[in-house]
Design a protein around this nucleic acid. Structure first.
Lengths: 158, 158
DNA sequence: CTTAAAAATTTTAAGCTTGAAATAAATATG
DNA sequence: CATATTTATTTCAAGCTTAAAATTTTTAAG
C-alpha cells in the first residue's frame, strides 16, 4: 500500500516524460518528412511512397513480388497495387508474371527507373544530411544508438 | 585541393550516418504511429487526425479558429475543413460564428467531446508509456534532450 | 480426383492529405 | 466612395492509406 502510494506518482511522471518523447519524435519526423515530400514534389515531380518503393526495388535487382513489397514497406497490399500502377504508367517499373505461380507478379525497375532513382537518392541524402546538420558527430552517434535501442512489442526498431 | 580530397570522404560518411538516423527515426515513429492509429480505431472508433484536433482544442476552452487549428497542427486548411466536418457530425465539436468577422469560424469542443477526449487521452498516455517502456529513465532523458536539440532550417523542434 | 483451405493480388469504400482555385468578407489605397 | 489587396475558409482533383470483401490460383486432405 505504502509502496503503491509512493511509486504511483513517480510512474506517472515517467509516463509523462515518455509521452513528451513521443510528441517530440513525431514532430521531428513529420517536419523532416514533409520537407522531403515537398522537395520530391518540386524537384522531381514524385512522391515519398513512390520513392520508397523504388528504394526497396533498387537493392533487389531481380525484383520483388507485390507481397514482398508490402511486407518490406509495412503497408497494405492494396496500397502497393495503386503505387505500382502509377510507377508502371511512368515507365519506372515493370510487372513480370512469376513463372510457376499465375497469381503472383514480380515487380522490377526499368533502366529508367534505376537511373532516376540513383540520381534522386544522392540528392535525397544531401537533403537529410543538411537537415540533420545541427547534430555534431558525437550527438549523431548517440542518437542513432538510442533510437536503435528502442523496442516496440519486444521487437527492435532496426 | 588536397583538403577537398581528404575531407570529402569523411563528410560522406557523416552523411550516411545522418541518413541512417533519419531512416531509424522514421521507422520508429511509423511503428508507434500505426500502433496508435490501430488502437484508436479498435478501441475508440476514431482516427489520429481527429484525436489531434481534439487535443488541440482541449487546451483552449474558448475554442480555435479554423486557421489557428491548421497552423497549430501544421496541416492544410482544406484538411481541417474535412476533419471538423466529421467531428461536427459526431457531435464532438461545434462551429460558432465569430462575431465581428463573418468569414471566420470558432471551433469548440462540446461537453461530449471534452469528456470523450479526456478519457482517451489518459488511455493513450498509457499506450505510449508502455510502447517506450524499453527505455530506462536515464535513456529517456537523454533521448528527449537529443531530440530537442535538433533544429531544421534553423528552427528547434520543440 | 474433389473439395476445402490457404495464398497472392485486386477492388472497394471511406477517410486523410495536399496544392491550387474559388468564394466571400475585411481592409487598405487612391 | 471605389477598387485592389489581403485574409478566412471551402471546394476540387489527385494521390495515399487502410480494412474488408472479392477473385484467382495453389496447395492440402480425404
Amino acid at each position: 500500500m505504502n509502496l503503491e502510494l509512493e511509486t504511483a506518482p513517480v510512474a506517472d511522471l515517467d509516463a509523462k516524460q515518455r509521452l513528451r518523447i513521443w510528441i517530440r519524435l513525431l514532430k521531428l519526423s513529420r517536419r523532416i518528412e514533409s520537407e522531403i515530400r515537398e522537395r520530391l514534389r518540386v524537384e522531381f515531380s514524385t512522391t515519398l511512397p513512390r520513392f520508397d518503393v523504388l528504394a526497396a526495388l533498387y537493392r533487389k535487382g531481380e525484383g520483388m513480388k507485390m507481397s514482398e513489397l508490402s511486407e518490406a514497406l509495412m503497408v497494405s497490399n492494396g496500397n502497393v497495387t495503386g503505387i505500382i500502377e502509377r510507377l508502371v504508367q511512368d515507365g519506372q517499373v515493370v510487372r513480370i508474371p512469376v513463372e510457376g505461380d499465375r497469381r503472383a507478379m514480380q515487380v522490377r525497375l526499368t533502366e529508367d527507373g534505376r537511373k532516376s532513382f540513383a540520381m534522386m537518392a544522392e540528392v535525397h541524402e544531401g537533403w537529410v544530411n543538411s537537415m540533420l546538420g545541427s547534430l555534431d558527430d558525437e550527438d549523431a552517434a548517440r542518437l542513432l544508438a538510442l533510437l536503435g535501442d528502442v523496442s516496440i512489442n519486444g521487437r527492435k526498431v532496426t
